[in-house]
Amino acid sequence: MISCTEFILAYNELFKYIEERGGREGLEDFWTRISDEFLFNLDELVRTKGIKGMEEYWGHTLTEEVANARIYADDKEFRIEMDECPSVKRINESGIKKCSSYCYHCDTLYKRVIEKYGFIYNLDIIDADKGVCCVKVRKID
């Protein structure tokens, strides 16, 4: 069993494996599959609770991943300010080569779910090497 504590490294290998064979297009296809088949919990939370659901989802996942991040939420906007992505940190600490498109999986996975429900999702990758980014979600008026 690949432990969930080793998952990020195995996931990174999976990205590299797919990218070598299918390029970025192949990765986008894979991320779309993950978004559609795996993120049904996020889908349900956003569909039923909107921004509150996003707060609930990332409040839980980022706590379990011991992320160095801040979450802000009000009626119209949800924001994650990530100072050090726990996934990027794990890969950097391992010394294993990171998939060059690694950070972009968050864009495809989450945008696809969230924008279905009247929001605009934007991921600003500030420093992919250090895992610094900002996710902004705004409700469409």
């Binding site: 969930c4 504590t5 998952f7 990020i8 795996f38 996942t61 379990e64």
Partner: peptide, 9 residues
């Protein structure tokens, strides 16, 4: 650090 949902992914 323990996020078991990763098994599903």
């Amino acid at each position: 650090y323990l996020h078991k949902d990763f098994h599903g992914s």
